[in-house]
Design a protein around this nucleic acid. Structure first.
Lengths: 132, 132
DNA sequence: ATACTCCATGGAGTCCACTCCAGGTCAAGA
DNA sequence: TCTTGACCTGGAGTGGACTCCATGGAGTAT
């Protein structure tokens, strides 16, 4: 598969694909006789993985070690497992922040909805007067 | 409340607080006679809000308009409501990416756990051979 | 042979969100 | 009065993650 096809398949630019490779979060891609990258299905799995985790906000740096360990062979299973569990914890933490923020927005939204309907904000009578 | 106290209360630096003010996502803070910032409880509500949303990954730019509208008075309720709903949708989208990534990690983790226990990866026999 | 498109590389540039710094003011305490 | 510590400003610097660019090679169609 060409770099163009892969970039379209995953909705990222060719530059980003080359950057991921140089950064070491996807493997070095085999080349055609002419020197063009020729992605194998195994490579696509890696691309899918990093795109997925990057979109969730996982730092590039956190993904480097995983590729490195994977290429060091089977004896790195325990380390890889630990790494994945660490990454999962990061995401769990992020998820909490996300739901906190959503709860905050929901609360404000519900008040604004009432305000827009009744023409006045429900907390205008309150002592605490932090507008917004 | 001094900038130091506020920074400690919310776990962000004083520089960040000044930056947020200059960026226009918290209001301009009143000063003491000597020129030092003197945060009021209303300001603290704003700080709490932006810290919460920033931690969830909401871009600074997306927060600017909300303060601006809030300072333009009550007739901006509908616009503010719309803005909050937009922000909520952003977070919902981000939440999906997060759960996608977590599912992916969970799947890999469960396979690695089995692998570490049994000494071999469960997908070694499979045709698809994307290691990792 | 020429044109066209795709791809390669190294390196510079961009954007975001801080973060740091120099140089100065201000208030309180020894 | 002198020192100390917190605070101020404007502006430069940083780190992460791309993104863009100039230049040049390869493959295909006319």
């Amino acid at each position: 598969m060409t770099i163009k096809e892969v970039s379209e398949k995953f909705g990222i630019t060719q530059d980003t694909l080359r950057y991921y490779e140089k950064a070491g979060i996807i493997p070095e891609i085999a080349r055609t006789s002419g020197g063009a990258r020729n992605y194998q299905s195994e490579d696509l799995e890696w691309v899918e993985h990093v795109v997925c985790l990057r979109q969730a906000g996982m730092p590039v740096e956190s993904l480097v070690e995983y590729l490195r360990l994977s290429q060091k062979g089977d004896r790195t299973f325990p380390e890889r497992l630990e790494l994945l569990q660490e990454q999962r914890e990061r995401l769990t933490a992020q998820q909490k922040k996300l739901t906190d923020a959503m709860n905050r927005l929901d609360f404000k939204i519900s008040r604004y909805q009432a305000a827009v309907e009744t023409g006045r904000l429900s907390w205008e009578d309150e002592k605490v007067n932090a507008k917004g």
